[in-house]
Nucleic acid binder design. Structure first.
Lengths: 88, 88
DNA sequence: CGGCATCCTTTCTGATACTG
DNA sequence: CAGTATCAGAAAGGATGCCG
């Protein structure tokens, strides 16, 4: 579920900021391509780790946030990150 | 560090059994190729998550086990596995 | 038995162009 | 702004043959 170059960065980003627009995520993930951002967001959504809200406005406005399930997973990912930070 | 198709299976296997020979690992990882087994073992060793012992016998005998560092990491991986088992 | 080298296939990722 | 489609390259993985 968390396999993919940018999935952890996305999840951690949504953990730090409860709700983010697509463009904001794109800016924050320095180096990510439009394609991978969308693709990973779709997969995370399919795995119900994040939720997507389309406000149906113009100009377009879509926001993403962690789902309850995602929030359950985060502590584990944070522990993993701690390990990788402590060790090289 | 744990990226790679078989790294988690290998680590979990070495967690269940403190010390295993190459051939035993190979048998237990149904489907793994000789190449990936060796490659992943080398990488895990380079990351100091496992340790390798060459007994210098004939016929060849090499065993692998979790390092202290590996044992530190395992609880995190187990938590992750629990999550993936609970949810799909 | 444990491992290396080579070649080939699959999977993943990125660049670019285009849409409502 | 958010997203899709297509293509090309990189990376990961597997099959096979060979060695001490």
């Amino acid at each position: 579920m968390i396999r993919g170059r940018w999935k952890l960065p996305i999840l951690f980003r949504l953990y730090a900021d409860p709700s983010l627009r697509t463009s904001q995520l794109r800016r924050d993930m320095a180096g990510i391509s439009q394609k991978m951002l969308t693709q990973h967001l779709r997969e995370l959504e399919a795995d119900r780790l994040i939720e997507r809200t389309d406000f149906g406005e113009k100009p377009l406005r879509v926001e993403y946030r962690l789902s309850d399930r995602g929030k359950q997973l985060l502590p584990v990912l944070i522990a993993a990150r701690s390990f990788s930070l402590d060790h090289g």
